[in-house]
Every structure is written in structure tokens, then in C-alpha cells.
Amino acid sequence: MKVLRTAWNTRWVYLAALVLTLAWGLAASTIAGWMTEFILGPFGGEADVEHALARLAEVVTHNPELGVGIGAGAVLTAAAAWLGWTLLGGAVFFAARGDALAQSARGAVQSAGPLAVQGIVHAVLTGLALLLVSVVFGPLPGVFRLLGLLVTTAVAVLARDLVRAQICLHGLDKPYHPRATVQGFVVAVKRPREIAITAGLWVLKMGLALVLVPLAARALGPSEASGWLRLMAGLGLAISFARLAWLTHWVPVELEPPASAPDDGAQTAET
């Protein structure tokens, strides 16, 4: 119940995030639609459902700028989103502990610097860890390597969540020192229960993200996909928010100085 209440606290931040997300998606959809209409002129209305792929392939191969535009849009979105979510991720923690929307936003802005820097450190460390695992597990059968990569990713997700929660809710003495993220990994590794829950929710969210493009592909032709796309994006976001909110229940953890046998039980956040 307590977790649910905490999650409910984040509703305004969630709504803000949802509106931003859907607006961004709508903008992309509208621009792509205009581009296509402009390129095709009076043509392109042929609803040949059985050859939908061929029709799209023809339009894109004759007009590669269309494909490049959509690809570039997605990449730019990912880059911009990384910055945006770094801020919003902070706001979720403040909101989860009961701060008002404006207060949460202020808190997120104040923590933005450390969140961004630790985010970059985390990205680098995660990359290295994945590389190491794939090299070490290289000689083993593929299924082991896949398992190793999955576990590493799960640990990395938890480590990032931990560091972010710590920055927002308790602050760090040296908020820009990479050691905080390193320590996040060290602490995360020792918490299999939290790893499992975090990873589960993260995988669920990623699963929804991965299914979006195939879903749109499935609906090629006269059927409409956008409603489903938006619903799934909203659901994925909600799962993300729930994960972060849940985490506030067992910070702080000692990220600095080096951990000395961290507490095994869940700790309650000071609210």
C-alpha cells in the first residue's frame, strides 16, 4: 500500500511526462505525414494492403530522405530524451516523497548537474561492464553470454536508480565524483531482490518500447496504430515511474564513503 501511495504521489510529474511524450510523438507523426504528402503530391493513396511493404519500400527507396528523416528524428529524440529524462527522473523522486509539482521541478533542476554527470559516468561504466562480460563469456555457449549480459544490465539499471535517488533525496558530499556511481554498482550487486524487481520492471518497459515499431508495421494499410502506440507508451512510462517511486522506500544507501557491509533489509526513506 505504501508503495502504491508513493507511486500515486508522482501522478502530476507522470502526467507532465506523458503529455510531453505524446506531444513529441504527435509532432514526429505530423512532420513525417507532411513530408510524405509533399513528396507524393497527388499520388500515394493506393491502399494495396497485400503489398503494403512493397509500397512503403518503393516510396522510401525512391525518396531516401524520408527514411533518413525518420531515422534521424528517432536518434535526435533519443539524445534529447536522455537529457530530458535525466531531469524528469529527478523530479519523480521528489514527487514520490510528497513534494508538490513545482517543488519537485525545482528540486530536479537543482540536482540536474550531478544527475547528468553521474548519468554519463553510468553510461560509460555500463558500456565497459557489458564489454567485459561479453569478452569473458565469449568462449561459453551463447545462452550464457546472453544471461551474463542480462544480469549485468539489471545490475546497471539498479545502480543508476540508486545513485539518482541518493542525489535527489539525500545529496552527496562530492556529487560530481564518479565514485558515487561505482559505489552504486557495488551496492546494487549485493541486493538480488531489488535487482530482480528493478530488472523485471525495466524489462517490461523495454519490452513495450521494442514492440512499438513492429506494432506500427503490423498495422500498415488502412488500419490505425497510433491509439495503441500511445497507450503502450503511456503504460511503459507508468511502469518506469512506479519503479523509481518504489526505490525511494529503501534509500539511503551508503554510496560514500566506500560501503561497509550495507544493510540487507529495505530501509525506509525519510519523508
Binding site: T30, L40, R55, A74, L215, R230, A233
Partner: peptide, 19 residues
């Protein structure tokens, strides 16, 4: 049809990136 398909694909790609 074609505009709609490409618009949907673009929206899906962007939402996937965001999510």
C-alpha cells in the same frame, strides 16, 4: 494510406526512442 503508414511508423520510432 501511405502518409498514414509513414506517420505511424515515425511516431512509433520516436515513442520507442523516448520510452
Amino acid at each position: 494510406t501511405t502518409e498514414g503508414d509513414i506517420a505511424d511508423l515515425a511516431e512509433a520510432a520516436v515513442l520507442a526512442a523516448l520510452l
